[in-house]
Design a protein around this nucleic acid. Structure first.
Lengths: 331, 331
DNA sequence: TTGAAAGCGCTAACAC
DNA sequence: GTGTTAGCGCTTTCAA
């Protein structure tokens, strides 16, 4: 293993000098020694030991993004943005899967307390009030879902804007009988989204019947029963969903019960996936700036690690309607 | 921050004693001091500093699974298996996204050289001969794709068995005109899979026409042209694909050109995704033991880190045909 | 049974 | 400009 010492001996200087040359900010050395040290380092293929460095610096130079469900369709984009931002910040971005239950939260916190990483990025709650626990432990973190039950340290998408656009889009297409499928009815985010959607329509003079509001899992389970409700001729002419996966599975289940999309009913999703384009019919949806979210979250976390005060942020970048085949003008 | 020292002072003993009690294997301390130390540790909520520990032990207690494409559909299962195995082994499993190009490989290697992790799990090659470079650098690693161009240190699925089953399944259903869609035609894995498939059929007296062999990306791009070829009445009665995504998109594209699945043509995929069940029609496929692969890979990597010699392994666990709607008996 | 001492590889005052 | 020194928190002989 080649250490600072190896280089120092080879160049006949002290380790501290080598350290200064290699990592120091102020370079108070003769150009000559500098050169010799740098060449030696290169020749020996020197790799600073991150452990020793971190131990001394009391900073690991790494952060972690923790995920409960690694197959979550919005993660790849968030990760892409986060990865780019981490690279720019010169920090190492680890990803991690965590289980459920209290131990999951504890082991995440331990990661920081043990010094392995400097901060945590996370989305889904391992359990209620995890935010509070992180706060108490003094662990730098950013939540990617700002609607938890605790005072949020979050970098979130502008979902308000997203559902506003979604509602207006349907209204603009002339729909007047509109349905909505949200996710977990109790969660704050779900409530916000649903209310935004409904209020936007209300302001345009469109009332949504209580019978036309449903809730499914983000992944679109439980859409069969909704599909069954929609067989009736009393059905809405369009349905907005809080996730593209709901739209996708509902589409499938509607097909099964003989309701055609978009001829009989229009469908619009939320978030975008490559898949949506190949669906039959392809799915109209609201694309959210997830990549920016990932990048902003990392920047925010780095700020916090550097000692800055955290400020909840809504990601710049506008939601965008991706028009495909599943949504047509009301007849 | 609470360290060994904090506990030592509180208990009026030396740090080395505390260290021994908390981590040491041989417990050569009076039950009394042991108790006192453990209680103090618990009360103070002591967390050993992994950095210091690793520095001293020359082992980080962490491994990394590196992925090029975080949206790869087979990863979640592999990760699940790997995660469970890592937990069991008491090591920390990090995931990581890497870019393309030479720097990607170098930064992975650096991760180990810097001491952040003890070994690497990876699948897709950052670039050719990366395996060789890892070998040269003395970095413990396991490749999840044993068909790279270099002497493989791999834990692979039994793809031979998988494609054999796939071929036999179609033959058993009475199909005699069969097509095949592989992935990158040049890669060793692709060649092996294709050859296994074709040989299996040949042994049963079924020849596959050269015109009925195609290649697409794993994600199923470029299936339009295949679909166009299949409009002709000369088409095979069944097609096997080397990925479920190919099957899925081909299915979609066939629909577009008016070829019905499975009435006009049967389709079978490779690997399984939740999605496959909701496809229209749902997709028959070969499910591979990816979870076991992840677990085995981690175990193998841990062996290697502990100094064991590496031995290429094929994952136990049998491929399984998941029968759904896209494949029917030949008429 | 317990403690003293050395050192893992690195950094940062401070002295020369 | 460069070296000396003193740790970061931990483990592990070795001595008491």
């Amino acid at each position: 293993m080649v250490t600072l010492r190896t280089i120092a001996e080879r160049c006949g200087v002290d380790v501290s000098t080598v350290s200064k040359v290699i990592h120091g900010r102020e370079i108070r050395v003769t150009e000559d020694t500098r050169q010799r040290i740098m060449t030696a380092a290169k020749e020996l293929n020197y790799r600073p030991n991150a452990l020793a460095r971190s131990l001394r610096l009391r900073r690991s130079g790494a952060i972690v993004m923790a995920m409960r469900d690694t197959s979550n369709i919005v993660y790849p984009e968030i990760i892409e943005g986060a990865h780019a931002a981490a690279e720019k910040a010169g920090t190492c971005l680890f990803l991690m899967k965590y289980g459920s239950g209290e131990t999951a939260g504890a082991s995440l916190i331990a990661l920081v307390q043990e010094g392995r990483v400097d901060g945590i990025l996370w989305d889904d709650l391992p359990y209620k009030s995890f935010s509070q626990e992180l706060l108490d432990a003094g662990v730098p973190f950013v939540c990617l879902n700002g609607y938890s039950d605790v005072e949020a340290q979050s970098v979130t998408l502008d979902d308000r804007q997203g559902f506003l656009k979604q509602a207006n889009y349907l209204a603009d297409l002339g729909h007047r009988k509109i349905g909505f499928i949200g996710v977990e009815p109790q969660s704050n985010i779900s409530i916000l989204c649903r209310e935004t959607f409904l209020n936007t329509l209300r302001e345009r003079g469109i009332a949504v019947s209580e019978n036309h509001i449903w809730h499914c899992s983000f992944e679109g389970r439980d859409t069969e029963s909704v599909a069954r409700c929609l067989v009736s001729e009393q059905r809405p002419t369009a349905i907005a969903t809080a996730s593209i996966l709901i739209a996708k599975r509902l589409c499938h289940n509607l097909h099964k019960v003989g309701v055609r999309v978009p001829e009989d009913i229009s469908l619009i999703g939320y978030h975008d996936v490559p898949d949506a384009e190949w669906n039959e019919p392809s799915l109209t949806t609201v694309k959210m700036p997830s990549r920016e979210q990932g990048a902003t979250a990392v920047e925010s976390l780095m700020d916090q690690i550097a000692g800055g005060r955290f400020q909840a942020r809504i990601v710049d970048g506008k939601p965008e309607i991706i028009e495909r085949e599943s949504c047509i003008r009301a007849v």
